Every structure is written in C-alpha cells, then in structure tokens.
Computed example of a mutant assay.
Amino acid sequence: MLSRSWRDLELLLDVLVHSGGVHGGHYYAFIRPDLSEQWFKFDDERVTKEDMKRAIEEQYGGEEEMNPGFNNTPFKFTKYSNAYMLVYIRESDKDKIMCNVDEKDIAEHLRIRLKREQEEKEQKKTEKSEAHLYTIIKVARDKDMREQIGRDIYFDLVDHDKVHSFRIQKQLPFSVFKEEVAKEFGVPVHFQRFWLWAKRQNNTYRPIRPLSTQQEAESVGQLREISNKMQNHELKLFLEVELGLDLHPCPLPDKTKEDILLFFKLYDPEKEELRYVGRLFVKALGKPADILSKLNEMAGFSPSVEIQLFEEIKFEPNVMCDHIDNNVPFHSSQLEDGDIICYQKSLPLGCNDQIRYPDVPSFLEYIRNRQRRQKKKILA
C-alpha cells in the first residue's frame, strides 16, 4: 500500500499504473522527474501535469464511496486504476541519479531513433506550415490500372489513393513537374501526355481531355484551379505513354477531334475474372467491328475468336452496362473520351446455364451486390 506520509514519499520517483481488469487494460505512469511536488502523467505520447493526490492517493484500486447529495443514498463504485509498481531512489544516490544526461549517456540505437523521429517531426511541421504553397498531383498510369482492376477495384479505372503522388510548389510551371515525372518514371518529357480527370453526372470518374499546350504553359497552381472547377479536390492526371516494340517510350500519336480514347477490360466468364488490357484511339465515325482483331490481340485470342462488347456506363445506384452493336459507329453509340468497354468471348449455345455469370453485366451486378453486403457487415 502506498504510504501517505510525505516524509516517506520524498524519494518516490515513479508510480506505474494499470487501468482496467484481468482481461485487458491500459498502462501509464506518474513521474516527478526532479523530485519536486510537481507530478506528470505519461500516457503514451501525451504528457500532462498532475497533482500529488491524483498521482498517489487515487491509485489504490478497490472501491470508493460516493455521496450523490440531495439526501440520496451513498453508493460504492469500483476503481480500476491500480499502482502495480513503485520506483524509489535512495537519498544518498539522489545526486547521481537526478543529474543532467549527456548524449553519450544514451545508447547509440536510441540516439539514432530519436534523431530520426525529431527529423520526421520537423519535416511534418514544415510541410504543415507550407501546405498552402504546395499542391499534390496524383498521376495514374496504365500500370496502376493493370494492378488494381480485378483486385482492388472493378468499376471505373483506378483508385487515386493508391497511385504515385507528387508534392509540387504551386508557382512552379507545369514543365518543372514534367521533369520530375521524367526522373521518377523514366519517361522523357516529349513522350508524356497528361489528361485531366473529371467526375461525371452519373458519379463515374474518367479522363476527359488531354492538357492543351496553353494549359501546360501555366503554373501548377493555375491547373489546380481548373481541376477544382471540374469538381476535383486534387489535381489528378492520367499519364498517357506509348511503348515501342522494345517496351521503351516512343512518340505519341496525334490526337484529332475525330479520335476517341477508350479503355478496355476483359472478362473471363469461366474464371469469373476481370482485368485491364489496355486502351486504344478509335475514330468517332468508325465501328467496333473495325477493332475486333486488335481487341483479340490485346486479349491474347486468335484473330477469328468472336467477342461481345459492353459499355460500362455507371454503378451507382445500380449497375448499368449495355451491349454494344459492333456495326454502329462509336459516335452514334455516344462513346467519348474516357469511356470503358468491357468485352469477353462469345459463349457457345447452351453454355449459359453452366456458368454463374455468363456475361459482363451479370458479373458486375454480382460484384456490386457483394460490395454492398460487405459494407453492411462493416457498418453492423
């Protein structure tokens, strides 16, 4: 039991406390570093001043009687704070123990750790104070889509929280940012083309147009303002890069008003798998039938394989994925930059009953229902 005599407490240094029961709890300590009457409570990273009564007299555990007043019957309640260890120092050793500590007195691995933590703390403090001078640019690439679609996500193209981000000063010209991208991704500046993302009225999120030469001549901050007008909270870009046969970046194709950038996902009904297979520029007046052989090549199919195409339109509040007529021009089907086409092999007659989700729409509907069930479990 803790002594209540101040004479006995003169050299009491620490009171180590457990709060809780036998099945779990929390540990903290009351310490008076200089043996004065001022105690401090060390609770994880939080340090607060405490008086002696709180540090010592209230750490007995057991029960305490409380009088609620107004002639009500007093009642007892259990105290869950218990001092499980007391640390004393001999008065004769006080001068040895309560002395200044030099850096050489601290173990080397602790010095390294403390220095690193201090540097990180200062860095965060600096970043916070200078946050208004910078903007975060998140850059999505084909690589991100290949890694995420069918694993982390199924709808839209990418989770922007999982793509590479750059912290750039707002007043710097966009050309400086492109140089940073060249260093990070190994893509020469003249082989880069950036697209702005936008949230559509149906709540999907797609690249809508490439930055113009005039826009690329502006500062990063000015581009951020353009992005905000399009309902984005950050500057989010899609980096278009063309790779040659040697898989090295090569010159980008010219984009005219007649060209539409489409993204493609491949569905395998037997494996119930969806994956990203790439993107293509198509002519607005062209037809899906014109690119079927190319889509077979992207999927690894032989040129003669029959495939079905579907447009992924939206997934909130319900999935909307419509069949595409191979002989209707892209423009007539209202396809535009950033749209997504999912495709699959045409199944032989009679196979539909043997496969749970025989086509893209039924599979995406299953995925959406599964996500809703998972969300309900989390909220329950």
Rank of each mutant, 00 (worst) to 15 (best):
W6G: 02
R7T: 15
R7I: 15
L9F: 02
E10D: 06
L11F: 12
D14L: 13
L16D: 14
L16F: 08
V17F: 07
V17Q: 04
S19N: 06
S19A: 13
V22W: 10
H23W: 14
H26Y: 05
H26S: 05
F30W: 02
F30A: 01
D34P: 01
D34Y: 00
D34V: 00
Q38D: 10
F42M: 11
D43H: 05
D43T: 03
R46C: 12
V47R: 07
V47I: 15
E50T: 09
D51E: 10
I56A: 01
E57F: 14
E58V: 00
G61K: 08
G61T: 06
E64M: 14
E64V: 14
E65C: 09
N67T: 05
N67M: 06
N71P: 00
N71T: 03
N72R: 15
P74I: 07
F75T: 02
F75K: 05
K76P: 02
F77D: 03
F77R: 15
T78R: 15
Y80Q: 11
S81T: 06
A83E: 08
A83V: 07
L86M: 12
V87I: 14
R90K: 12
E91R: 12
D93K: 10
D95S: 14
D95E: 15
D95A: 13
K96R: 14
N100W: 04
N100D: 11
N100T: 13
I106A: 08
A107W: 11
K115I: 01
K115E: 14
